[in-house]
Amino acid sequence: MKKVEFTVEQVPCSTAPLKYDETLCIGCNRCAEVCQCDILLPSAEKGKHPIVMYPGECYYCGACVMVCPRPGAIRLSHPLMNRAKFVPVKKTEE
């Protein structure tokens, strides 16, 4: 079989599902290990957070946050259009 070289580039998308806090992340890559959509690739630099290589393929399940040993190191946010509205309760006269 003919040898083939792999290349990879971050595929941009109009939303940012996941953000890392570099001060908290220890680069253990547990998030990349469990992501079922495999959108995270380990950083080339040891100890650094993974790269969100395919943000548009995020399924917003939160498994990465659940498995993270350092609370707050990853944040998941819904696309702006999907942030459902809530308002203070209305008291009516019964």
């Binding site: 399924y59 917003y60 399940c61 939160g62 946050v65 659940m66 998941l76 946010s77 819904h78 942030r83 459902a84 509205k85 809530f86 308002v87 203070p88 309760v89 209305k90």
Partner: peptide, 23 residues
């Protein structure tokens, strides 16, 4: 898809089921 995306996320945004209603 609720523990982090809904429960934690909405709580962080300030949602309190005793004080807010969800549209």
């Amino acid at each position: 898809k609720t523990k982090i995306p809904i429960y934690q996320n909405y709580t962080e945004r300030g949602f309190d089921p005793e004080q807010h209603m969800l549209q």
